[in-house]
Simulated scan of single mutants.
Amino acid sequence: MYIIKLLNSFTIFFKKSIFLWNIFSFLGYAKRGHEVLVFQNLPVHKMYGPISLNHTNPMKTFRRFIIYGMVGLVLEVIYTGLASLLQGDYSMHGFTFLVMLPIYGLAVFLEPLHSKIRDIPWWTRGAIYLVIIWSIEYSSGLILAGIIGNCPWHYTDRLNINGYITLKMAPEWYFAGLGFELLHNFLDTLPI
């Protein structure tokens, strides 16, 4: 039953993800082949040399998926702990949801995008990451609500969109995207 709900949610998301598809197509490294996303035209960067997707080695991709997921979890606990402090909770109670590990882990699939746009100004890259992160957050919330009956996070401020995302978080997600870009650069220097 849950698998059928998951497949239906993914089907609905991908049918409605024309916006994301247009971004990938515009950047020139994706094409449609029998309704499957095929990556092509991988760039060569003058400073970093040939840039690969790192997705040809499943274990390398999996390790990076886990690294991005763990870093995301830790940063979320720190962020919520500092937010608690600002609200007067001196214990700095921080929290996250375990389901966030695979959601943050999806950053591994932004590596090709980062490789493609690394030469454009940082403020533009941050805006691109912001839109993509909001898309991932919204679709993840929608899928989780469809599967488990509710979304672990629910925004209630005036700037929320269906409770799944909030425009109030724009600065945080903007800089998180740029931060994960730095982590990608660092991971590329390691043999993992």
Score class of each variant (00 low, 15 high):
187 L>C: 11
91 S>Y: 11
186 F>S: 07
152 P>H: 09
71 V>L: 10
141 G>F: 01
13 F>Y: 09
61 T>D: 05
118 R>V: 12
75 L>V: 10
144 L>C: 08
91 S>L: 12
7 L>M: 14
104 Y>G: 07
167 L>N: 01
191 P>N: 02
34 H>D: 09
192 I>K: 03
68 Y>R: 10
19 F>M: 02
38 V>S: 05
58 P>I: 06
19 F>N: 00
157 D>P: 09
43 P>F: 04
43 P>C: 04
134 W>F: 13
123 W>G: 08
154 H>S: 13
95 F>L: 11
140 S>A: 15
133 I>S: 03
172 E>H: 13
166 T>D: 00
111 E>N: 14
136 I>N: 03
171 P>T: 03
4 I>F: 12
118 R>L: 08
166 T>L: 03
46 K>W: 01
66 I>A: 15
100 M>H: 02
75 L>H: 01
108 V>C: 09
74 V>D: 00
134 W>N: 11
66 I>P: 06
35 E>W: 12
110 L>Q: 05
101 L>Q: 00
111 E>R: 14
100 M>L: 08
174 Y>S: 07
167 L>H: 02
139 S>L: 10
75 L>S: 02
84 S>P: 03
21 W>A: 14
160 N>K: 06
21 W>S: 13
58 P>S: 11
5 K>Q: 12
119 D>L: 11
71 V>E: 01
78 I>S: 01
125 R>M: 04
65 F>H: 11
172 E>L: 15
167 L>K: 01
147 I>P: 00
95 F>Y: 14
169 M>A: 06
87 Q>H: 08
132 I>M: 08
85 L>S: 04
168 K>W: 03
69 G>N: 02
74 V>Q: 01
105 G>T: 04
166 T>Y: 04
110 L>M: 14
68 Y>Q: 09
83 A>I: 07
29 Y>S: 04
126 G>A: 05
3 I>S: 13
171 P>E: 07
12 I>M: 08
178 L>C: 02
53 L>C: 14
183 L>V: 13
119 D>A: 10
76 E>F: 09
178 L>M: 07
86 L>H: 02
68 Y>S: 09
47 M>Y: 07
15 K>G: 06
149 G>R: 00
186 F>T: 10
110 L>V: 10
94 G>F: 05
102 P>S: 05
184 H>D: 13
51 I>N: 01
192 I>S: 09
52 S>T: 15
73 L>K: 03
85 L>E: 04
138 Y>L: 07
46 K>C: 05
156 T>Q: 12
93 H>R: 15
54 N>A: 15
114 H>A: 03
142 L>A: 09
27 L>K: 05
53 L>S: 15
113 L>V: 14
22 N>H: 13
157 D>L: 11
161 I>K: 08
119 D>K: 10
85 L>F: 15
108 V>D: 06
88 G>S: 04
156 T>C: 11
131 V>L: 14
87 Q>C: 02
120 I>L: 09
81 G>E: 07
157 D>S: 09
72 G>D: 06
93 H>Y: 11
74 V>K: 08
191 P>G: 04
132 I>W: 01
105 G>H: 07
156 T>A: 10
7 L>Y: 13
113 L>Y: 00
13 F>N: 05
114 H>M: 12
131 V>T: 11
157 D>A: 06
159 L>Q: 10
67 I>P: 03
190 L>V: 04
42 L>Y: 15
88 G>N: 06
156 T>S: 14
34 H>Q: 12
153 W>K: 00
74 V>M: 11
155 Y>R: 12
